[in-house]
Design a protein around this nucleic acid. Structure first.
Length: 476
DNA sequence: ATGTTC
């Protein structure tokens, strides 16, 4: 991307002034190198978002941003319902409430070493993963509705976990306002065999070693020590979320036209928050959030079953669970005035700073854990939320490394078989169901996650707490 | 991301 149109605002914060029909500027977070490597299409898409009614502050792009459906992935945009603000399916993404959950194991790397191969094989056997791969649960209509309303709380009540888990899940494991009636029969049918499955693409389950600690106080609050073993899983609402996106896009395109909203790109289809379609989408999207939270809860139970068998000394507890594809109704102070806003985070992680309401009390002083997923060969990160620069990006940070090379290009450039060997040579046990899928996910297909989180920290979005290094990686 | 093209 050309940096000429950008004004430096602060370290790693850049502003593209409003032009044409843009109501607000675009604000980028990132260093010169990350922004220079960013596709021009990211600016084009973020500028399109800036034209939408009711947008507040700016159209934001995280350091890991790349182009997506309508809105950039790595984009944050907040809308005020009192000013005609909109909700957009493309602003949330198809994998609604995709997110990361990180689990403590209570073990250190020495305890893991003798059983690493066995653990990798057992996880790969026990965790359903891959396109169209079902799980062992089949929900009837009544259970489906209870799951969509209850999220991880439903899952725990059904025996998939422990009550204490819920305190460490965003929203306490269940978001309010879910409307199962706004979810199509087809979306529910697609989800029926997919509860408790990992999916494919960039979704994964990793066993990781806690590497360098960058912030001792926050690491203590989060229970992270160098050399400890943790498990992270990255997945979302599977077929249900995808079908909701598919179902609502044409409805939103009609709603936008009906409300006189001129769209610079049809992929920006949206509906006023205060409209029938807007309200229905929000109800369906919240049901999908609960589905994703329930899914990660069931997967946690499967992880516990594997550890009970292979490493019975393990005690699996939650560090945290946070989504990075959502639209959330939140209170934010803008120019000294507190307002209710609908914050779209698409490939961007909520990053509440110290003292924010809704955080577990033990995190109040250090801020929310911000879980950043890396790639199969590189680190993941735990960051801590900060108040943010100025109005910030409504308390948001990056979500991962961000794709650099398209799936198609990556599948030509890398080979799954060689990746397994290369990873093994570096002490990383990689297990995948599709060699092509592995090639598409080659570490080289992604940006440098260490550079992304450093830029996020320098921009003041979050601060680095701990680096997580992969030991075992399970992919779909 | 995705019963990888309704």
């Amino acid at each position: 991307m050309e940096l000429r149109s950008l004004e430096p605002l602060a370290e790693c914060v850049w502003r593209h002034p409003p032009r044409g029909r843009m109501r607000v500027p675009v604000v980028f977070f990132g260093d010169r190198e990350l922004l220079a490597a960013m596709d021009e299409k990211v600016l084009e898409q973020a500028a399109n978002v800036a034209t939408l009614p009711g947008i507040v502050g700016a159209s934001y792009c995280m350091p890991d941003a790349h182009w997506g459906y309508g809105f950039p992935i790595g984009g944050v945009a907040a809308f005020d319902p009192d000013e005609g603000g909109v909700v957009s399916a493309g602003g949330v993404g198809f994998d609604i409430s995709c997110g990361v959950r990180t689990l403590h194991t209570g073990l250190d790397e020495e305890a893991l070493a003798p059983v690493r191969e066995r653990l990798a094989d057992a996880l790969f056997r026990h965790i359903p993963a891959g396109v169209g791969v079902g799980g062992r649960i089949r929900l009837d209509d009544e259970a489906m509705e209870a799951m969509l309303r209850g999220g991880a709380r439903w899952a725990v009540a059904e025996g998939w976990g422990e009550a204490a888990d819920l305190a460490r899940v965003e929203e306490g494991g269940c978001v309010a306002g879910a409307d199962p009636d706004a979810v199509s029969a087809r979306a529910k049918a697609r989800q029926r065999p997919e509860m408790g499955t990992l999916g494919s693409g960039n979704h994964y389950l990793e066993v990781q070693r806690v590497g360098a600690i960058h912030d001792r106080e926050a690491a203590r609050a989060y229970g992270l020590e160098e050399g400890a073993v943790v498990v992270s899983l990255h997945c979302g609402s599977r077929g249900l979320g995808h079908q909701i996106g598919t179902d609502y896009l044409p409805r939103m395109a009609r709603a936008a036209a009906g409300h006189g909203i001129a769209l610079p790109d049809r992929e920006l289809a949206c509906a006023p928050i205060r409209s029938e379609v807007g309200a229905q989408y929000l109800g369906a999207m919240r049901a999908a959030i609960n589905c994703a939270l329930a899914n990660r809860q069931i997967l946690t139970h499967l992880v516990r079953e594997v550890f009970a068998d292979v490493l019975p000394a393990a005690r699996i507890t939650l560090l945290y669970d946070v989504s990075h594809n959502t639209c959330k109704e939140e209170r934010h102070v803008v120019d000294g005035v507190e307002r209710t806003l609908f914050v779209h985070r698409k490939g961007a992680t909520r990053a509440f700073g110290p003292g924010s309401p809704g955080l577990p009390p033990e995190f109040a002083a250090v801020g929310q854990p911000v879980l950043i997923g890396g790639t199969m060969g590189t680190a993941s990160w735990v960051l801590a939320g900060r108040p943010g620069p100025g109005e910030g990006a409504f308390q948001s940070a990056c979500h991962g490394a961000g794709r650099r090379v398209s799936r198609r290009q990556a599948s030509r450039r890398w080979q799954g078989r060689s990746l397994i060997e290369e990873m093994a040579a570096r002490g990383i046990l990689l297990r995948g169901r599709s060699l092509r899928g592995l090639a598409e996910e080659a570490p080289g297909a992604y940006k440098d996650v260490d550079a992304v989180v450093e830029a996020a920290e320098r921009a003041g979005l979050a601060r680095r707490v701990a680096r997580l290094e992969p030991l075992i990686c399970i992919k779909g």
